[in-house]
């Protein structure tokens, strides 16, 4: 266990393993996402109340899942940065923060498009929507703080603290619909309980969620590899790698 943990701290080792996993992540992700979206958008039955407009759920829910999961994984990496000072954890946070921002934006955007025909409004200041907007600003803050500090080590620590401070927002997003009166309905897609939708709607949704997770894995690898190359450009293995690629 600890040996694996220490290996994970080596950028060179990660670079190799990421290169090996990436094609699988990309292929699996595209396949699952395409299957989930085509099934969900074209073949799943329509909803008795909302008709076809509910189908945006197949994009909205996976984006919202990713938006929160990415933040949780960033928080775990932030603890590793603060406690073990592992370089790779900081590389991870830095590489995936913009991806999290993107998915949060997508969740808010698709939610607004969905809200107009069903609720009758693009936006309402209810607890769920507001907490999600705060998550968007947190991602923005993490990216900005990282860019604002030139020294790599102090930037890593400052960002880690900010990420940890923001993590209280995650349970608020998750439970906002249960704790307070909101316009947003409670969760449909639950992993621990019986879903409140029939199997032929739930399965395509599951496929899209899994596919998007895999694609996120691919995106995280490619961005981390770039960041590693930039940071380790003076080391021998990177030079050898670049020289080998040039030949």
């Amino acid at each position: 266990m600890w040996q694996f943990f220490h290996k994970l701290g080596s950028p060179k080792w990660f670079f190799g393993i990421a290169t090996r996993f990436m094609p699988w992540l990309l292929a699996g992700g595209l396949l699952l996402l395409a299957a989930g979206l085509i099934w969900g958008l074209a073949f799943a039955p329509k909803d008795y109340l909302q008709g076809n407009s509910y189908r945006i759920i197949f994009i909205h829910v996976p984006s919202a899942f990713l938006a929160q999961s990415i933040y949780i994984s960033m928080a775990v990496a932030a603890v590793v940065t603060l406690v073990w000072r592992m370089k790779l954890a900081d590389v991870f946070v830095k590489a995936i923060a913009p991806v999290g921002l993107l998915f949060t934006f997508l969740a808010l955007f698709t939610g607004a498009i969905w809200g107009k025909p069903t609720w009758g409004t693009w936006w309402v200041w209810d607890a769920r929507l507001t907490a999600m907007l705060i998550l968007l600003f947190l991602y923005g803050g993490v990216i900005a703080l990282d860019r604002a500090i030139n020294d790599e080590k102090s930037a890593a620590r400052a960002v880690a603290v900010l990420v940890l401070v923001g993590v209280v927002n995650i349970p608020i997003i998750k439970y906002s619909v249960d704790w307070w009166n909101t316009l947003h309905q409670p969760a449909t897609f639950k992993l621990t309980e019986k879903p409140t939708m029939p199997m032929e709607m739930w399965l395509p949704l599951l496929l899209s969620v899994l596919g998007l997770y895999l694609l996120f894995g691919w995106l995280a690898c490619i961005r981390m590899k770039t960041e590693i190359l930039v940071r380790e450009q003076r080391t021998r293995w990177v030079r050898e790698l670049v020289l080998a690629g040039r030949k």
């Binding site: 039955p45 008795y48 069903t118 609720w119 309905q185 449909t188 409140t196 939708m197 029939p198």
Partner: peptide
């Protein structure tokens, strides 16, 4: 007036 819907989805 805004419509609120629940988390139940089902075919017609």
């Amino acid at each position: 007036v805004l419509a609120k819907h629940d988390e139940q989805y089902m075919p017609p």
